[in-house]
Design a protein around this nucleic acid. Sequence first.
DNA 1: TTTAATTCGTTCGCCAACTTTACAAATGGA
DNA 2: TCCATTTGTAAAGTTGGCGAACGAATTAAA
Lengths: 402, 402
Amino acid sequence: MNALSAIATTRQLTQRAVMRVLLERGALSRAELARLTGLSKQTMSEVFRELEGDGWVRESGRTQGTVGRSAATYEICAERALVFGADVGGTKVQAAIADMHGIILTEMIEPTDARGGEHVIAQLARMSRQLAERANVAVERLLVGTIGIPGAFNTRSQRLFMVPNIAGLEGTRFADTLATQVNFDIHVGNDVNMAAKGEQWMGEGRNVDNFVFIAIGTGIGMGIINERRVLSGAHGAAGEISTLPIGADPYDGRTFRAGALETAAGSVAIRERYEGAGGEAGLTVREIIDRIASGDTIASATLDAVARTMAEAVLAVSAVVDPERVILGGSIGARPELLERIERLLPLCMPSPPHCTVSELGSRAGLYGTIASSLDHLRESLFRTPEIDLPMPHAKPVEVKS
Amino acid sequence: MNALSAIATTRQLTQRAVMRVLLERGALSRAELARLTGLSKQTMSEVFRELEGDGWVRESGRTQGTVGRSAATYEICAERALVFGADVGGTKVQAAIADMHGIILTEMIEPTDARGGEHVIAQLARMSRQLAERANVAVERLLVGTIGIPGAFNTRSQRLFMVPNIAGLEGTRFADTLATQVNFDIHVGNDVNMAAKGEQWMGEGRNVDNFVFIAIGTGIGMGIINERRVLSGAHGAAGEISTLPIGADPYDGRTFRAGALETAAGSVAIRERYEGAGGEAGLTVREIIDRIASGDTIASATLDAVARTMAEAVLAVSAVVDPERVILGGSIGARPELLERIERLLPLCMPSPPHCTVSELGSRAGLYGTIASSLDHLRESLFRTPEIDLPMPHAKPVEVKS
DNA sequence: TTTAATTCGTTCGCCAACTTTACAAATGGA
DNA sequence: TCCATTTGTAAAGTTGGCGAACGAATTAAA
């Protein structure tokens, strides 16, 4: 609490309280808001004068039909503050901008700039400008952006690690660099974590406080939502379950890099397993799974084996973080044939298996997650009551006196 | 923000800010505090008059040696609010009370009431009274208590589950029942989580934001500290790693109850393995490990195998929650012979293993954890700035407009 | 159509909490 | 001894919010 602020914050607090309620409940009259917040009507009038002056709210109509004088209702100017989100993959970039309600105004997809590094960053900056232009809004309205990337962003060092799929980003201060080019706050997250966040916002994870999103495709990754928040771990590597010691010997040198689980259940493993069991060579995983319907027993057995491994992975994950639900995604994870098998196997290896489903948002989960994350940060910065926090050291000397 | 509060909170906020700084920095003068908080000297004087009147602070001395008039310094009356902590095990109960600084005033140990259920609850209530009496403080000063229990406490239903070691507690509303008998807030946590919290406060987990505490004894359990907070999971079962599918086949009916990992690396498994390999029958695990020093190769090989399994468990845990550090505890986990072996094995199965250590607090970790947890709750209720929170619904309809 | 009841939103007077300015009191150093 | 410096209090002013009262608007009832 700095000089002058002690009192000045009071008004800020009430403004924020009003904005929060308004964002939640939609259009409301001043009198209703006074009742909801416990503030007085006069205060409410004054607060609204200020908020309206700053463009945060506007009159939206009048109440009718009830006894008594009709009231003016106010609503949030949702486009007063906008957010940017982009899901950067090895091949394509999906990006969008949304207003404070999370309504997506514009969205676009283009191939990831193959030159990587600075070029990708410049590409993202350009896309944010283009999206604003197309939506016909001032770029200055963009206040927060979140980028999902297949890699680990170390929040302490502010550097990106483990980004094999995009050239020239390893070890860069990605967020800072981009932030200087776009003039708004940038947050960076792992793409699978973002997909999990997307499912939390708009998909199978709605109203679920603790769940995991497992993406099974070329690689295997997981995003953990714990108490409604993304769990990142010490180095931003939480959920990197490709290395789980399941399905293959983790001490084997060949599994060291890709990880035991990925070696056993990734798409390469599936093809090898299928071909090794006498299946036709050269098929994609999608084609192999498609063949199950037409009675290909080798394909079926292959998927059985994968399911058995993945069920063990679900067991392992449940043992550690105890999710309420498991959402499967990715090109392989989204297949109902796999879900079926996993659901059959789980009760055989654990007493109370978590509820399993398939991703609701598919390839859009990551993009939605970046928007959701941006909205979180936006609301946090706009509406959170500021903590008076000098860090409170936790460890104090203990003397046992008796 | 409820009725009437908007104004009333302002002074509360400043009082809390002052208390926080004072708790952190120790004795300070009013002028110093004014500078630190940014509030004016007069406000500070007034706030101190109030705090002193309520018994929260007292004059502790005067500054000397500096230019200018000497100032009166104030300190927190640490014994103004006390906390209770108890670690309930199958055989014994460790309990203590501490002041606001975490200084333990009294502590005691007694056998767990074998009749279980209500009797254990009554025992805890009595112990809290006895401890207060012995420390010569009024019981009314006790404001918060935390109980560590080998089981899972479901915060939603407020009921205890999976408490095989203490009779008559399964499914009870433990916290509520105890709270009515003691007249202060009661929080309940898993004993291993509490041990982790203890290590965070006073042991190997100091200043480590993300770590896990693995207890290896008769059973195997884990407490996860994520971003400085205990990670509980959806059903309070996070960290129940005895069921990890490692070291034994999880689909095997025999491992279904105890869990694969525990079947492979618990104390029963160690004895069986040792005897199965031709070791002397009837030894305790402690004795088996002790024999390694005197050249018992069977004992050494037995522990090698356990270490190999536990290293895989560490790998699995790291893959999921990415801890910065792993702390080993429990009668077996605390043995340096095991740590040595695990540390040798980890680099063979994972690229960047977490730092591993042995518990610093040993059997006191759990008790310390309950005290730390109580202090957290106490400080939260006394000093946290209240959030104005009508829950902010996150999911809003999205319309893709373009 | 008139009147009553009800609700909205503003004005007025007041309070609580903080700030700035001013100043007396205490203290170490020149 | 005097002075610069710092502490702590007093007085006056500012900001934000509250309750009461009241006019305005609107529906319900007479």
